[in-house]
Structure formats: structure tokens, C-alpha cells
């Protein structure tokens, strides 16, 4: 395999992963918040923790994107 081909496959793997990782970060964040709200604190804090952890999940998703872009721009320099 040539160098270009290898690079292409590596990027294919990372890009095909990033979309799903983004989505599941948000889902997991929401899930943690929902669990804390409804199971741990038994509805006393509803819906604040859900929203807070949803926000954290979204930030985590964006951090994944940010890390990937940083990795790519480092590779080019």
C-alpha cells in the first residue's frame, strides 16, 4: 500500500467515527443527567441536572471534534 492510501484509510476511520461519537456523547450526557434526576435524587432536582449534563455531553462532543481538527492541522504543519 502506498503512503497516500494509508493516510486515506486512517482518515476514513477517524471521520467515520467522529459523527457517531458526537451523537453518543450527547446521548450519554443526557442519560447521566436523567439517571441522576429520576433515580438518584428521585425527581427532587428535575429537570436541572438533566439540562446541565446534556450541556456537558454537547461540550464533550465538540471537544472530540476539536481534538480531531487539532490533530489534522498538526499533521499538516
Amino acid at each position: 500500500m502506498s503512503e497516500d492510501r494509508r493516510e486515506m484509510i486512517r482518515q476514513l476511520a477517524e471521520y467515520s467515527q467522529i459523527g457517531m461519537t458526537f451523537v453518543f456523547s450527547i446521548v450519554i450526557g443526557f442519560g447521566i443527567g436523567w439517571f441522576l434526576d429520576n433515580k438518584v435524587f428521585a425527581g427532587k432536582t428535575t429537570p436541572y441536572l438533566t439540562f446541565i449534563f446534556l450541556g456537558v455531553g454537547i461540550v464533550a462532543g465538540f471537544k472530540n471534534l476539536w481534538d480531531l481538527t487539532k490533530k489534522i492541522s498538526n499533521g499538516k504543519e
Binding site: Q17, T21, F24, S25, I28, I32, A60, N64
Partner: peptide
Amino acid sequence: ISNFARLISL
């Protein structure tokens, strides 16, 4: 969170 997201997405 992103570590667990890795687990699920993979």
C-alpha cells in the same frame, strides 16, 4: 463521557 461514547460508537 467521550470515552464511553467511544465504546458505544465503535
